[in-house]
Design a protein around this nucleic acid. Structure first.
Length: 191
DNA sequence: GCCAACGTTGGC
DNA sequence: GCCAACGTTGGC
């Protein structure tokens, strides 16, 4: 399934839904067709106590599957937005301080998350069926740690980053990053 | 630990 | 379809 394509602006006659999924509103463009060779940018969050950027660097092939995401907007970004070769910031949430700490690459595109139909798993979802999976994941590989982590406060204080989805939408664990934001944050991080 | 900002659920 | 109750994320 692909996300509904939104041709142009919402019809004025139709009242906008109370809560429009992010992927159909301001960030619909991240699902649009790409120019040849175009790379898109993302940000993924993980609590360092659970799985840190260092853990990713130490993992076999520096790669892991990004499983257990149980939010439909985050799922759609992974399933329908991310393509192999895309890059993502690695963000430590619930950390001291919470910060963007490194870069990883999408090395496998969206595929069903088997933890969702494993009854012994913490994030088991009885409504997810292997024949019609509800939840998807991607594989990510560590590329480069920031020389200087960029704390959330620094992002919030920087006018160039005021529109980052990270600050505009607090609780979403997978969000898009614009090319300008990407370049700016990379410079701050010393990479 | 508190709570704001959501998303989801379920009664009606 | 509405909306109140509840659950989750994650900053502080």
């Amino acid at each position: 399934m692909t996300p509904k394509q939104r041709a142009g602006e919402p019809t004025p006659a139709k009242k906008a839904p109370k809560s429009m999924p992010y992927e159909q509103g301001a960030w619909a463009h991240v699902f649009a067709p790409r120019a040849a060779g175009e790379i898109r940018y993302w940000l993924i969050k993980s609590e360092p106590d659970v799985f840190s950027y260092e853990d990713l660097e130490k993992a076999p092939k520096k790669t892991t599957c990004w499983d257990s995401v149980r939010n439909s907007s985050a799922r759609n970004f992974m399933r329908d937005g991310m393509k192999k070769g895309d890059l993502a910031f690695y963000y430590h949430s619930n950390a001291d301080p919470s910060a963007i700490v490194g870069i990883c690459e999408i090395v496998r595109e969206g595929y069903p998350d088997p933890t969702s139909w494993d009854p012994s798993h913490d994030y088991f979802d009885p409504k997810s069926d292997p024949d019609m999976p509800t939840w998807y994941m991607v594989d990510v590989k560590a590329v480069k740690a920031f020389r200087t982590p960029v704390p959330l406060q620094q992002v919030k204080d920087d006018p160039a980053l005021a529109e980052m989805a990270l600050v505009k939408v607090g609780r979403l664990s997978v969000v898009p990053v614009t090319p300008d934001e990407w370049a700016h944050v990379c410079a701050l991080g010393g990479v």
